[in-house]
Structures are given as C-alpha cells and as structure tokens.
Computed example of a mutant assay.
Amino acid sequence: MTDNTIRLTRRFPHPPQAVWKALTTPDLLARWWAPGDIAPTAGHRFTLDMGAWGTQQCEVLSVDPGTSISFLFAEGTLDTTVTWTLEAVEDGTVLHLEHAGFKLDTPMGQQAFDGMGSGWPGVLSRIDDVLVDAARP
C-alpha cells in the first residue's frame, strides 16, 4: 500500500506563539503561502487563492489553539487534509506538517501529491520571512 501523506518537519528559532500567528493570521499567511481568510475556529469555511491553481475551498476541521489546526483543503476537488502541529522546544518551535488524503489512484490526485510533495519544502521555507513580524506583540 502506498502512503498518500506528505509529512515535513521544520524547526524555527521563534516561540510557538509567533509560528501560530504566521499560520493563522490571514495577512501573514498570504506572505508565505496564499491569500485567504483563514481563522482558527472549527467549522470556519474559507478560501485560499492558489494563483495558477485557482481558488481552493477549505474548512477548519479542528483547532487546539496555539498547538494545532487541521483543515480540509481543496474541497470538492482534492479533498485532502492539512494539519499543522506546533511543538515547543528549548530554542524555539518545531512545526509538523501533515498533508493527507491524496487519491493516488487518480491522475489529479497523483499529480497533486507529486507537486505538493516537492513544493511544500519551499513553501515552508518562506515562513522564515514573516516570523520576525509575527513575533511582535
């Protein structure tokens, strides 16, 4: 059986509150990933403007404030789940990304899995640019 989940881990020299803010504040999220009206509230429906890949419908599935957020991504097309989990460590924060539920038996699902598997590392590296701003009160 093939694993249909992308898993990545990044360490940041910033407190969890700053990383959480970068993940869940619309203007900061737009600076490193995609414009959208995300809110860390279960049941919140929002869109992400993925540029050439179009506007993606999303819904927050679960939230543990400051620790994790999970949302349905590309509802009606990919129907995958993105989960970000923060782990406080002595010198900052470890961010765990899990992007799950790709339908690898479909051409679109396999293409999205391959593209996002190679794309997520670059996307996550752009968080560094906003964490300094996110760390401000």
Rank of each mutant, 00 (worst) to 15 (best):
98 E>S: 07
95 L>R: 00
90 E>T: 15
86 L>V: 10
29 L>M: 04
36 G>W: 09
15 P>A: 15
91 D>K: 14
105 D>F: 03
79 D>S: 08
12 F>G: 01
111 Q>M: 11
19 V>Q: 13
12 F>L: 05
77 T>W: 09
35 P>N: 09
45 R>A: 13
81 T>I: 12
75 E>G: 11
75 E>K: 13
31 R>H: 02
58 C>Y: 06
133 D>K: 07
105 D>G: 07
116 M>K: 01
66 G>W: 05
21 K>C: 09
33 W>K: 02
68 S>F: 05
90 E>W: 03
134 A>M: 12
18 A>F: 00
118 S>R: 05
22 A>R: 10
53 W>A: 15
11 R>D: 14
43 G>C: 09
118 S>P: 01
107 P>M: 09
92 G>C: 06
128 D>P: 00
40 P>N: 14
130 V>N: 04
47 T>Y: 06
33 W>M: 13
69 I>L: 13
14 H>D: 06
37 D>K: 03
26 P>Q: 06
100 A>M: 01
26 P>K: 02
21 K>V: 06
127 I>Y: 01
72 L>Y: 05
78 L>T: 12
27 D>K: 01
71 F>I: 05
121 P>S: 06
112 A>E: 06
83 T>D: 02
113 F>S: 04
61 L>K: 15
64 D>K: 14
60 V>G: 11
132 V>G: 14
33 W>S: 12
39 A>N: 10
114 D>V: 12
56 Q>W: 15
50 M>C: 15
